[in-house]
Amino acid sequence: MALDRALVGRSYPPSAVYEVGRAKIAEFAAAVGATDPVHHDVEAARAAGHADVVAPPTFAIVVSLEAAFVVLADDEVGLDYSRVVHGEQRFTHHRPIRAGDRLVATTTIDAARTVAGNDLLTARVELATEDGEAVCTATSMLVARGAA
């Protein structure tokens, strides 16, 4: 079934607050081999001009991918979850994510099209602090492979 272009621009209610912890940043950094002390050591982070330890460049996915998946739960979108793979990912950092951030994710459908039987849906997740400071724009293109 082809994706409905009228879905483009659809926005979903903001997520619950995700509070970024020092231990989670350190755990994620260790998992991707990011050894820079700004991820692990508060003093090193402060010496580098940050208010607290900062997250590695792709950490936002921890919050944003789940937020993007709200589109999969939308019956009017009708993507077959069992056939969905991650096609593309983009991050635009407005500032580094740091420990203590209380982030809210707001998801919008930026593009929806069907190419060669595959449904391609682009979900843009705006991560901001609960006070409204823009932190990161995380854009995920999800592909639902057409049945062969």
Binding site: P56, E88, Q89, T92
Partner: peptide, 22 residues
Amino acid sequence: ALAARAVTGWTGDPAALLEYQV
């Protein structure tokens, strides 16, 4: 994430990576 390390290792500052897409 692993590929980003080639960039952050080169700049020496993980916060200097402003945009990243694959």
